[in-house]
């Protein structure tokens, strides 16, 4: 797979203070790339450098083979972006807002605008002034604005900020559709971990302006061992001692939990039944992204 965006040892210094310290990574074609980090880690600064709102102090950013430093217009034409909130001209209608941006790219037809409006589901309200729009409609208009010129790379900074669950779901579905059907790549930044887990294929964690880790979502969560919870009837003393010493189990109200590799579970169940423990259920407690995130960033 070809990479759409490449950061090469990017640094940003503001007033002699290093904000971003040597970021390097690539975003591949057709993937949703998550950009995760606590507040103030440098997510927004990095995104502002990618879209050319901020100058790069050192290093380079290449978009579809064009450097944002040397060929700004050549590089930026492949990007559609929302940086933080999608602020629109409130005194214009949604359509007039889109026209503003359509005039700044070459060859965007009326049909294309209508198609994009339809896609984000704003057809009914597009001719109303933006000041009458709800937050969700603002987000949808923002999305329409960055899809007008069929960009190769979509950059959404905190796209679900302030949206209700239905709105978040909607954005997620749009992103899936755009990457699967149109082969777009998407960068999403957020500090909402549960959401990133559902949206992204790969996630980069940054902290204090440095890249800590890039992993695909599944391996990121699973790791080697997992936590299993057993629901049992009453366990007698000898069995409790056995569980604690052999399996390092933790006794809970409804049974016990064990951290172990998946393939050892059947053996454990057999032994439990042989010892006469009543077993009602076994389930994995998947480590959430949140746990992993806190684990990684607190190192």
């Amino acid at each position: 797979m070809t990479s759409v965006l490449t950061l090469k040892n990017v640094k940003k210094t503001i007033k002699r203070k290093t904000i971003i310290n040597g970021l390097s990574f690539s975003v591949l074609e057709g993937e949703v790339f998550g950009f995760l980090g606590p507040n103030g880690a440098g997510k927004t600064t990095t995104i502002r450098m990618i879209v050319g709102l901020m100058e790069i102090s050192e290093g380079d950013i290449v978009i579809c083979g064009k450097s944002i430093k040397d060929d700004f217009t050549g590089a930026i034409r492949h990007i559609g972006a929302i940086v933080e909130n999608p602020e629109m001209y409130k005194f214009l209608t949604g359509y007039q807002n889109l026209m503003q941006y359509a005039r700044m790219h070459n060859g965007i037809s009326k049909g294309k605008i209508a198609e994009v409006v339809e896609l984000v589901g704003l057809t009914d309200r597009i001719h109303e002034k933006v000041k009458t729009y709800s937050l969700g409609m603002h987000q949808r208009l923002g999305l329409a604005q960055c899809l007008l010129h069929d960009p190769k790379l979509l950059i959404l900074d905190e796209p679900t900020n302030g949206l209700d669950p239905a709105g978040i779901r909607e954005i997620r579905d749009h992103l899936r559709m755009l990457t699967r059907e149109r082969g777009m790549s998407v960068i999403v930044s957020s500090h909402l971990l549960s959401e990133m887990e559902l949206m992204c294929d790969r996630i980069a964690i940054i902290q204090n302006g440095e890249l800590i880790d890039v992993q695909t979502v599944n391996e990121f969560i699973d790791g080697e061992t997992a936590l299993f919870s057993f629901e049992t009837g009453l366990i007698n003393k000898p069995e409790v001692t056995w569980l604690k010493s052999e399996w390092d189990a933790t006794i809970t109200e409804s049974g016990f939990t064990v951290e172990t590799a998946r393939e050892k579970i059947p053996g454990l169940i057999k032994k439990l039944t042989a010892k006469g423990v009543d077993l009602y259920g076994v389930k994995t407690i998947a480590k959430t992204l949140e746990d992993r995130f806190l684990e990684v960033t607190s190192k």
Binding site: G74, V83, Y101, Q145
Partner: peptide, 9 residues
């Protein structure tokens, strides 16, 4: 922010 991320100097 939306104005300056267009292919225009």
């Amino acid at each position: 922010k939306l104005l300056l991320i267009r292919p225009m100097n």
